[in-house]
Amino acid sequence: MTEDTRPGARETIPQGTQTLAKGLQIISAIAHGSTTLKAVVESTGIGRSSAHRMIQLLVHTGYLRHGSPGQFRLGPTLIEYGFTALNQDPLPVVARESLDALAARTQDTIHLSVEDAESVLYLHKIPGTRGAEMRSRIGHRMPMTRTGVGKALLLGQEDRWERVFTAENPGSGSPAVEAFVNRMRDYTRDGATFDLEENEPGIRCVAAPIRDGSGSIVAGVSLSATRPYMPKDRMHALVPVMKAAAKEISVKLGYQQD
């Protein structure tokens, strides 16, 4: 069976679906910057003629579109399906009122995120009204161990901390791993997490986990701002604010209040 090369993929491709898998590889390759036929062939290993035929079909069906001469972009069909997928997920709908209130209260950038394939996936974003614009966007992925919301999604899962940190920070020695594990223990105790410019220079973040009716962490909410608007004393003051917002959303998902 053919190995699935998508980022984060772990399983092998079922027999009889190799052609479909190649088409999905092409879409993924173009989404990640391989925007020419040559680049697609190099990044996927698919033969040039096969890749060319598949790209033609994907353009015809709207999954891809022509960009600059000789280049391809994701197409309108994927945009349509992306919005449909968001609307089918109750989480952004359930959380929207709470997120809007949090954004209005703080004037900072708010994110709603979930874990997908051991990375952070942004489902919703409310840009802040002051400071620099964050580079994040809906559908964007970020590392778990360098973002506040990624750490929030990992709270209480001590058996994963070292493995995920090592995977995302190759070459890190034992002191760095131990320091991360110790921080995660503190965050788990506090019920909220910080990003002290670990992911993006000048950007700090406070985050908290969202739970469902089973008590499991299913999402995270974060508040981000540039350093001048996020001194450490304000970060600590925001911990109960973020925990309250996360709990409000959690209750709407069936979580039983303590």
Rank of each mutant, 00 (worst) to 15 (best):
D4K: 13
R6G: 14
T12H: 11
I13W: 15
Q15L: 08
G16N: 15
Q18K: 14
L20E: 14
L24E: 05
Q25P: 00
I26K: 00
S28T: 10
H32M: 12
G33W: 04
A51R: 04
A51Q: 08
I55V: 15
I55Y: 02
Q56S: 14
S68Q: 13
G75M: 12
T77F: 12
I79Q: 10
E80F: 07
G82Y: 11
N87Q: 09
D89M: 04
P90G: 01
L91M: 03
V93C: 00
V94R: 12
A95E: 12
E97P: 00
R105Y: 03
R105S: 14
T106N: 08
Q107P: 01
I110C: 04
I110T: 08
I110S: 02
L112N: 11
S119D: 06
L123R: 10
G128T: 07
R135D: 15
R135T: 13
R137M: 11
I138P: 00
P143V: 02
P143W: 00
T147L: 09
G150C: 09
K151I: 12
K151A: 07
L153H: 12
L153M: 14
L154S: 09
G156C: 11
G156T: 05
D159Y: 08
W161N: 00
W161F: 06
W161S: 06
W161T: 01
R163G: 10
F165P: 00
A167I: 07
E168W: 09
E168Q: 13
S172F: 11
G173Q: 01
G173S: 01
A176F: 02
V177L: 07
A179C: 02
F180V: 07
V181P: 01
R183E: 06
M184D: 04
M184S: 05
D186A: 05
R189S: 10
D190W: 08
T193H: 00
F194M: 05
N199Q: 05
R204E: 13
C205E: 04
R211F: 05
S214G: 14
S216P: 00
I217N: 10
A219K: 02
V221I: 15
S224N: 14
A225G: 08
Y229D: 08
K232A: 07
D233K: 14
H236T: 13
A237P: 04
A237C: 02
V239L: 14
M242Q: 07
A244I: 06
V251E: 08
L253T: 04
L253M: 08
G254N: 07
Y255N: 03
D258C: 02
